[in-house]
């Protein structure tokens, strides 16, 4: 593996941005949860609280024209690519000022102009789709890279295996990132999986190196992502990364997550494991003034508050949207 430049991960300003990004994801998701309880967010939502280091660390390693393919647990991945909070909150609330004007909802966040090529809610489906985007980059010689996120439960569906083999044989510029938060919805993945490391133990089957990373350490995530993305960009083919992490809350909506042992939850929420607390402590250790971190947090809080209000003030989507954009001509006509 070739690393062409010295990593910026040792640079304090870079780290401060990575901290800001993680704080933004944490506070956005915390507000999204409140808005769900207040019934502003209807339907469903799947939060990434506890998993922010992966979204932030990987996005920092991507080029603006690279592509993200996310799951229904995709708020963090969307925001990490630079999408503003207001349209994401508004989409969660089903407003016309939403990212997709309310037509997609929480599980389908998409912003093509930011390289967020969709959030997919059928387990595994987006892995082959990401391969297609990577194939297109390869054919057109654009050296763009597709990065696709999925959960530990996803390694047991067929599309995962089809996509890994496909990417390997065609040497596609795609990076597969398994966010191993140990659980599917309400079942521990290890109870229904033949191998201990859901993604890493499968890598050999596709001629890939097993890559395991502490998914709660944004610097470590950034480094493995950077290497894998560079490799893909250089035409050396796909990588499969398993990032171990944990969701602090339940699977979706207001799920209290009672199927998990209390001690386990407490351990992962502790300052030693929680990615945001850990990163804060690291910065302090490096000699960053606490006031600088407080300032970042205050700025993010103000941004979250302003975005919440801006989203709430959005109108309900009008009837004009209902029959729009089934087809590329903008309409929905299926007969003359």
């Amino acid at each position: 593996m070739t690393t062409t430049e010295a990593s910026p991960v040792h640079d304090v300003d870079f780290k401060l941005e990575l901290y800001r990004s993680q704080v933004a994801l944490r506070r956005f998701e915390t507000r999204a949860y409140d808005l769900f309880l207040e019934n502003y967010v209807k339907g469903t939502s799947h939060l990434s609280i506890g998993q922010e280091a992966i979204a932030a660390g990987v996005a920092a390693a991507m080029r603006p024209d690279d592509w993200t393919f996310a799951t229904y647990r995709g708020h963090a991945h969307t925001l990490a690519r630079g999408v503003a909070m207001t349209p994401v909150f508004a989409e969660l609330m089903g407003r016309a000022n939403g990212l997709m004007a309310g037509k997609g909802g929480s599980m389908h966040l998409t912003s093509v102009e930011h390289g967020v090529m969709g959030s997919y809610a059928i387990i595994g489906a987006h892995l082959p789709i990401a391969c297609g985007a990577a194939w297109s980059a390869q054919y057109r010689g654009t050296d763009q890279v597709a990065v696709v996120f999925f959960g530990d439960g996803t390694v047991n569906i067929g599309a995962f295996h089809e996509a890994l083999n496909f990417a390997a044989i065609w040497k596609l510029p795609v990076v597969f990132i398994c966010e191993n938060n140990l659980y599917m919805e309400y079942t521990r993945t290890s109870e229904v999986t033949a191998v201990a490391r859901p993604a890493a133990d499968r890598a050999a089957a596709y001629g890939l190196e097993p890559i395991l990373v502490d998914g709660n350490d944004a610097d470590a995530v950034y480094e493995v992502a950077r290497t894998a993305i560079e490799r893909a960009r250089a035409g050396e083919g796909p990588s499969l990364i398993e990032a171990e992490t944990y969701r602090h809350g339940g699977h979706s909506r207001a799920d209290p997550g009672k199927y998990r042992p209390d001690e386990e939850v407490a351990l992962w929420k502790s300052a030693e494991r929680d990615p945001v607390s850990r990163y804060r402590a690291r910065l302090l250790e490096l000699g960053v003034e606490e006031a600088a971190l407080d300032r970042i947090e205050a700025e993010v809080d103000a941004e979250v508050d302003a975005a919440t209000e801006a989203a709430k003030s959005g109108a309900a989507p009008g009837e004009d949207l209902l029959m729009k954009d089934v087809w590329a001509n903008g309409g929905a006509e299926w007969r003359n």
């Binding site: 789709i129 391969c131 297109s136 067929g158 496909f166």
Partner: peptide
Amino acid sequence: PVRVRDTPISEQAILGAAMGAAMTGL
């Protein structure tokens, strides 16, 4: 072989590849 490609027996991968290629301009 670059424009006419034989695939493995992976129908989801075949159509996923087509979809991803189409959404990026092919």
